[in-house]
Amino acid sequence: MTDPAYQRLGLPATASSFAVLRAAVRALHPDTGAVRGFRAARKRFYRQMLRAHAARQAAGDTPTD
């Protein structure tokens, strides 16, 4: 895994997409969700986390911790 933000989520490879989204939402600062101007950036971040998780599942990676 090359994405350090995804690694900081600390999710197992068996986690669902919904669990990835919940962890990604919690990883952001609470004030970030209140700023309307950051909406596109938040959506981009969530998609990036889902892509990294899908790639990890496709590769059959095991947890690194």
Rank of each mutant, 00 (worst) to 15 (best):
D31Y: 05
T32L: 03
P12Y: 00
H29I: 00
T62F: 03
D61W: 13
Q57A: 13
H53M: 06
M1V: 03
A19Q: 15
L28K: 07
D65A: 12
A19H: 06
G60Y: 01
A55Q: 12
L50Q: 10
A52G: 13
M49H: 06
D3L: 01
R47K: 09
G33T: 02
R26Q: 12
P30R: 11
F18R: 15
L11H: 05
A34R: 15
P63F: 05
M1A: 11
Q57N: 01
A54M: 08
S17D: 15
K43G: 11
G60S: 11
P63E: 12
F45E: 06
H29D: 14
K43C: 14
A13D: 05
T14E: 09
A13W: 02
P30I: 03
T62C: 01
R51T: 08
A27S: 13
A15S: 12
G33V: 02
F38W: 10
A40C: 01
F38E: 15
G33I: 04
G10S: 04
R51G: 03
T2G: 03
D65E: 06
S16A: 10
A40K: 12
G37C: 02
R8V: 01
D61L: 14
G37K: 04
S17K: 08
Q7E: 13
P63G: 02
S17Q: 11
D65H: 03
Q7H: 08
F45L: 03
A23W: 02
A27N: 11
A59F: 02
F38D: 14
D3K: 05
G10Q: 07
Y6Q: 02
D31C: 00
R8M: 07
G60A: 13
L50R: 10
L9V: 04
P4F: 00
V25M: 10
H29T: 05
F18D: 15
Q48N: 09
T64G: 08
A55N: 11
A54N: 09
H29Y: 05
R39F: 01
R36Y: 06
G10M: 02
R26S: 13
S17A: 12
R36S: 09
F18M: 08
V25E: 08
R39E: 15
R39G: 01
A34E: 11
G60M: 11
P4Y: 00
V35T: 11
V35Q: 14
F18A: 09
D31S: 08
H53V: 07
A34L: 14
A19G: 09
M1L: 04
A27Y: 05
Y46P: 00
R36C: 01
F45G: 07
R22C: 10
R51M: 03
R56W: 09
V20Y: 08
R42F: 03
R44F: 02
K43W: 07
A52M: 02
A41Y: 00
L11V: 03
D31R: 11
H53Q: 08
R22E: 14
P63R: 08
Q57Y: 04
G60K: 03
A55V: 02
R36V: 13
R8P: 01
A55H: 05
A58W: 04
V35K: 13
A59R: 14
M49P: 10
V35D: 15
A27H: 14
T32K: 06
A54F: 03
A27Q: 14
T2R: 09
H53Y: 04
Q57R: 15
P30N: 09
A54G: 10
R42I: 13
V35N: 13
R39Q: 14
A27C: 01
R8F: 01
Q57V: 15
F38T: 12
Q48K: 12
A34F: 04
D61A: 10
K43A: 15
D65R: 02
